[in-house]
Design a protein around this nucleic acid. Structure first.
Lengths: 340, 340
DNA sequence: TTGTACGCGTTATCAA
DNA sequence: TTGATAACGCGTACAA
């Protein structure tokens, strides 16, 4: 019953008293093989639980049908949701996916890249770590002819690479306009880390929405934070401490930041907190449990971002798009209004 | 600069005008190889970005140094946190990890298993799907001599397999005792799906804590739900609708369920809601944003569960533990009290 | 100290 | 219709 070592073609061939190549062809349904022979082989293979060795096939075919994904963190639902989009489309097309977390550590990212390179992935999808400045470990792939698609977190200064991004400008524009349409004039923008490009793209969406709707811009209504709670609180203090210019609405870079902000405002019993309307990027499922929930969320459609990334990657792998013909794909955001 | 095809040992050998085996030995630091030769080879390898082909090595070594993980869902932080524990210890020991989601779909789980089998993983860690009754796709591994460790979600009736589990009995006991110590006499237990073993283990912990502390048990204080909101609400109605026996505390199977429960009680303005003290399994980071937060959480230590799973698996792989010598490892839970 | 030869499991070409 | 053989990239026993 339990045969300790994997069954190989050779083993099957010996059992069936025929050649390895006939067995191989029978299993792969070659037209030149006798139907009866096929039947015998396939039955025996099933009976003995034959499982082809992928390493051997990879070696022969010089391709692995594996897609590598490097991303910072699986705790962030944006990324896990994006994986779903990648997986769906990848398996449909006969590809498997290997996920590797960098934990926002450059060293770990390099290790992941090398591991995937050794595994000869056919393509790479990557969201770079916070600290990635040098790209040698990722450029290796392209130098070996393996296409790379950057998604979400990408080298913003570098135009010579393939990118799939959420249209964060559009998302922030929509959020701001929604608040304007609800009658707000003093809409604050709480940005994220200034090194991250999205911070500025979103700011531009905010600014443009104000301009297009004739709402005056005030620098007092803009502040920045990172993902640290203390910094968020002091940013919020800056925004809300001026009594003659208190915001009536807030657009925040990310929902976790927004939650910290709201929590702080509640903790100090900020007047009219209930009238302040907030929107953050994320659309966390948790929102329904909050007592002062955001009025809406910017849904970044991570599944769609992932799907677009794998679609582009497969086109590159199949040489339907030239590797030097650098693509930039933008995925629109959607404003989700939360019911009261 | 960009050489389209991967550099092989053969290519290096030609460049250096020596044999493939010398190159191989030089790169693997064989003592019989001249130091100067080693230097030359290693320099050339670096210069040309030589990356050994893992498929070729796997084939040769008859092992992949890859651990497969099959789990239901990456959206559940329990699993993503457990992966962290696995990864840490795996990479320390020179193993890589391939993660595969079943999405609680048996068909997908079978596909994942077959994929990992073809990849000749050296070991498998698996949390089974809700619908896994038949285990043929997982038994294959053991039949091929590949050890399998079930973690968290496991075939509870089957004692002939290796398991690593959270000690959910102990967790629930602790939670209940904590509430008793705070003076509660009417502590409700809101269990999960009755098919899941953990539901009953936790119930036993609850019951035993009551008994050991001389608190009388009342069947009215026990209800069950699944992860569906509607069912949770009707379970809560059953628990709290009897005015002469209203619980003053609640132990819930999982925090998402608990949040639905609390939300409902708030929505109906349940009297004295603020005095009701709740505990759920999970310890979600989100708790700090809630207005009526649980007083404590049962932290299941998923990282530790993952780490114990990989440790056991590596021992099985290294034949330090016999495959037939079935192990059951329990990882204690910790009660986390939330500051006001 | 280096090189030759073989095999890992599979597929493909060509010959029988 | 089937079989022998070479090749994929690498490691290693053995020969030189």
């Amino acid at each position: 019953m339990t045969n300790n070592t994997p069954v190989t073609l050779k083993f099957l061939a010996e059992k069936l008293k025929m050649s390895v190549s006939t067995v191989s062809k029978a299993l792969n349904n070659y037209p030149t093989i006798n139907e009866y022979t096929k039947k015998r082989v396939q039955e025996m293979a099933r009976e003995l639980h034959f499982t082809p060795n992928k390493s051997a096939i990879n070696l022969k075919e010089k391709k692995s049908r594996i897609i590598g994904i490097i991303l910072p963190n699986l705790l962030d639902h944006f990324f896990t949701r994006s994986i779903y989009g990648v997986e769906q489309f990848a398996t449909q097309n006969g590809y498997n996916v290997i996920i590797s977390q960098s934990h926002d550590d450059l060293e770990k990212e390099i290790q992941s890249a090398n591991m995937l390179l050794r595994s000869r992935v056919d393509g790479l999808i990557v969201a770079i770590s916070k600290h990635t400045q040098d790209f040698a470990h990722l450029d290796q792939f392209e130098n070996m002819g393996i296409p790379v698609v950057y998604y979400t977190r990408n080298p913003s200064f570098n135009l010579s690479c393939h990118k799939v991004l959420g249209n964060t400008f559009q998302g922030c524009y929509k959020a701001t306009q929604f608040l304007i349409n609800r009658g707000h004039k003093k809409i604050a923008y709480l940005g994220g880390p200034k090194m991250i490009n999205f911070t500025h793209d979103r700011f531009n969406g905010y600014i443009n929405a104000l301009k297009d709707n004739g709402v005056p811009f005030s620098a007092d209504l803009v502040a920045y934070t990172d993902f640290d709670k203390e910094n968020t609180i002091s940013a919020i203090q800056n925004l809300f401490d001026n009594p003659q210019n208190t915001p009536t609405a807030l657009v925040a870079f990310k929902e976790p930041i927004l939650f910290d902000a709201i929590k702080y405002l509640r903790s100090i019993n900020h007047p009219n907190l209930d009238q302040i309307e907030c929107i953050g990027f994320g659309n966390t499922s948790f929102i329904s449990y909050l007592d002062s929930p955001p009025i809406a969320s910017v849904e970044e459609n991570p599944e769609s971002v992932g799907e677009n990334a794998i679609k582009l990657l497969l086109q590159l792998i199949n040489r339907e798009i030239d590797m030097e013909n650098y693509q930039k794909v933008m995925v629109d955001c959607k404003l989700i209004v939360h019911e009261a």
